[in-house]
């Protein structure tokens, strides 16, 4: 009885903390969006972040996609030989890439690159009082720093995911043609046949949601940094871990609920 009670107390406390955290993050998100949509605007900051989040993520996202697409093709082929279904390779590669692996892997790679960098940069500005200085110089750092990051991630992620999908499909195609002896024309035809608008819609919804979480968590943990360099390190870790969890969780929810 005592043990059960103690367990309930621990679980209860955890749930309370969780709900409090969700409340704080939601309030933060609303503040950022509201301030970002009201003047003054900082378009130059937005473009700067688009370059940082979108353009400079391309190499790592492209590499991830091409390797994953190729590996996926090989896996499906190997599994397919067991029950004479190797012809499903193009279909599974395209659906697997577009609906699931493209968005999720791109999300995780960009989270690792971008959430951590945002948390570290804003966290450093917090502990070195640069944010306070900005406030005394009458510039709202929600508008100057945070909103451009959030909107840029929201815009860049869908584009990155579309590119990743293309490269991933290409990776699978290349492997299938050069190693698995598929017919090029037939492979492409099947790929096109199985791809529907719905798949792209799902990829775009997922990637926008992931982009939102990537910037939100990076900035949130950056802003609430305290305690010098160690605090910045802690925020960086928390940003990445919480973004990963949110990406995987929201991916499941979107997959099951919205498109299940």
């Amino acid at each position: 009885m005592k043990g059960v009670q103690a367990l309930l107390i621990v679980v209860g406390r955890f749930m309370l903390q969780l709900f409090a955290a969700i409340g704080r993050v939601t309030a933060f998100a609303i503040t950022v969006i509201w301030r970002g949509l009201t003047p003054p605007y900082y378009p130059a900051r937005l473009f700067e972040q688009l370059a940082r989040i979108g353009w400079f993520s391309l190499p790592v996202v492209g590499l991830t996609a091409i390797f994953t697409g190729a590996a996926l093709a090989q896996q499906i082929f190997t599994a397919g030989t067991r029950f004479n279904a190797t012809s499903t390779v193009p279909a599974v590669v395209v659906l697997g890439m577009v609906r699931e692996l493209g968005p999720v892997l791109t999300g995780l790679m960009v989270a690792g690159r971008v959430s951590s960098a945002m948390a570290a940069e804003i966290g450093t500005m917090r502990v070195t009082e640069q944010l306070d200085a900005m406030a005394t110089l009458r510039t709202d750092y929600y508008r100057y720093l945070i909103a451009p990051r959030l909107f840029a991630a929201l815009i860049a992620m869908p584009i990155l995911v579309l590119i990743a999908n293309g490269i991933g499909i290409l990776g699978g195609y290349a492997l299938a043609i050069y190693k698995l002896d598929f017919n090029s024309v037939g492979y492409l035809k099947t790929t096109r046949h199985y791809l529907e608008a719905d798949d792209f819609r799902m990829a775009l919804v997922k990637s926008a949601v992931f982009g939102f979480f990537i910037a939100l968590m990076g900035c949130y943990h950056g802003l609430k940094t305290s305690g010098g360099a160690a605090g910045v390190g802690q925020s960086t870790t928390q940003a990445v871990v919480s973004t990963f969890i949110l990406i995987l969780l929201s991916n499941l929810l979107i997959t099951v609920i919205a498109f299940g």
């Binding site: 450093t124 500005m125 070195t128 009082e129 640069q130 306070d132 200085a133 900005m134 005394t136």
Partner: peptide, 12 residues
């Protein structure tokens, strides 16, 4: 108002 912060707080 102008303010000089103890650590400078320049935007790096």
């Amino acid at each position: 108002v102008g303010m000089l912060f103890q650590g400078g707080a320049l935007f790096d």
